[in-house]
């Protein structure tokens, strides 16, 4: 702290931000109740935090728990605040920073619609095979591929489909879990 001067809109100068923003994946265990998503998203919006990706689903029905996976880009200081602010919300049980807690598994699913015929269509099929993408819908002039994997793998598949007649893409956002025997 007590770094150099930086004019900010706040009452006085805040300390200059010398830290570099990092991308982190947070896993948030919450009570599955009305408004919980609004609370979390509202907190990010109100305090000016970023959301790169957000995945929400009930994971333990009997206990009424949902797991929210948030990918955010922030400096280490802000990341600490995000975690503490999330934990202040009454229905939030725990927040784990999967990125800083060691290696975690990260997966995403995408549905990708590609149109075309002739050689581009055949090329799309060959690439889909290489990426282990499933064909979940087919017409004479289109396919819908289902591809699962790390976000980077999906990014490359989409990039390859682009010149071959890509029509549209839908992605689930990230689902992430820590490696090893420990649970959250």
């Amino acid at each position: 702290m007590n770094a150099h001067l930086q004019p900010s809109g706040s009452a006085y100068f805040l300390a200059a931000e010398t830290q570099v923003p990092e991308r982190h994946t947070l896993s948030v265990l919450v009570d599955n109740e009305p408004g919980i998503l609004a609370r979390i998203v509202g907190l990010f919006a109100a305090r000016g935090y970023n959301i790169d990706s957000l995945t929400v689903s009930e994971t333990e029905h009997e206990k009424g728990l949902s797991r929210i996976t948030v990918v955010t880009v922030a400096t280490p200081k802000v990341l600490t605040q995000i975690k503490l602010q999330l934990e202040r919300l009454i229905p939030v049980h725990r927040v784990h920073d999967l990125t800083s807690e060691g290696k975690s598994l990260e997966r995403e699913l995408a549905l990708i619609k590609v149109g075309g015929s002739g050689e581009p269509r055949a090329e799309a099929l060959r690439l889909a095979d290489a990426f282990r993408a499933q064909i979940v819908d087919a017409t004479t002039e289109s396919f819908v591929f289902e591809v699962t994997g790390k976000p980077s793998k999906i990014d490359s598949f989409i990039a390859l489909m682009m010149p071959l007649g890509l029509i549209e893409v839908v992605r689930t956002g990230l689902a992430a879990i820590s490696r090893g025997p420990e649970g959250m």
Partner: peptide, 13 residues
């Protein structure tokens, strides 16, 4: 609070 600290980079150095 900001009303307390004054300029924060020179706060109680």
């Amino acid at each position: 609070d900001d009303r307390i600290t004054g300029r924060i980079d020179a706060f109680s150095p």
